[in-house]
């Protein structure tokens, strides 16, 4: 708990938390505006109203989330490298893997808050704009969890990458490359491509159904834990020389 408080204090004036919250607000605003403008076109699609609500707006929301994660992950370790603060941390009686875990947790909770904001907007739209009796709260909650879980591999991967490079342009470049390659390959049916964390995040956005793809969820959980474990191991064993 103390490590978490210290970590939150370190992030003062960095914009790590505001950037993800801003993404959440922006995503929610996009959902409102987009549905308002395209309501008739969207509801005219040959899809169930809940599928329209959850899958047709998620593409842009997901891209916002993705860039929010990339930027926040870059910033969360840049603050350690700028001014060589991380060197001081190694000289203090504290757990460096603990610091890594706290950064991971802060980003996870903030991302969850952003996704919650976006889905609150979807809930409001669903209750007020979908045909009477077609809004399903359970489906929305299920999709919220699905979009959160499939976003986590990118977060876990980006925290790992940004923790290993002092130059912030490297993780930022990796993030952009991940986005472009993920977008190019996301619609492929080959399950093996889901080892690419960005493709997993794209899965709910390219699907036509709001029903979670359990294979993607499984890949997401394995990758999240794998990158987190790798990051913790590196934080413990590959130290500053």
């Amino acid at each position: 708990m103390r490590a978490l408080v210290i970590e939150l204090r370190k992030e003062k004036r960095t914009g790590v938390i505001p950037v993800l919250l801003a993404v959440g607000i922006l995503g929610a605003a996009y959902a409102f505006v987009s549905f308002l403008i395209r309501k008739d076109t969207l509801l005219g699609l040959p899809l169930a109203p809940m599928d329209v609500l959850l899958t047709q707006l998620y593409g842009m929301i997901m891209i916002l989330n993705l860039f929010g994660i990339v930027v926040a992950a870059c910033m969360v370790f840049h603050l350690e490298f700028k001014g060589s603060a991380v060197k001081k941390m190694y000289m203090l009686p504290m757990s460096v893997p603990g610091m890594y875990l706290c950064k991971f947790l802060i980003l996870t909770v903030t991302l969850f808050a952003a996704i919650a904001l976006e889905n609150l907007a979807l809930m409001k739209i669903g209750q007020s704009c979908l045909p009477q009796g077609t809004f399903e709260m359970g489906t929305l909650l299920c999709f919220t969890a699905y979009s959160f879980f499939t976003s986590m591999p990118v977060l876990s991967f980006m925290v790992l990458i940004s923790s290993r490079f002092e130059n912030m342009w490297v993780p930022l470049g990796v993030g952009v490359a991940g986005f472009l390659s993920g977008m190019a390959l996301a619609s492929s049916a080959a399950a093996v491509l889901m080892v690419h964390p960005f493709i997993v995040m794209f899965k709910p956005a390219v699907a036509m159904s709001a029903q979670p793809d359990m294979l993607a969820v499984m890949f997401a959980q394995i990758e999240t834990l794998l990158f987190l474990g790798l990051g913790l191991w590196m934080a413990k064993n590959l130290r500053y020389e």
Binding site: R2, R9, K12, K82, G83, S84, A85, K87, L92, P93
Partner: peptide, 18 residues
């Protein structure tokens, strides 16, 4: 080594808390 985004006092506060 210091946190560029924090003041001198806040930097020392981080170390103090640790």
């Amino acid at each position: 080594s210091f946190y560029a985004n924090l003041t001198g006092r806040e930097n020392l506060d981080v170390i103090r808390r640790i």
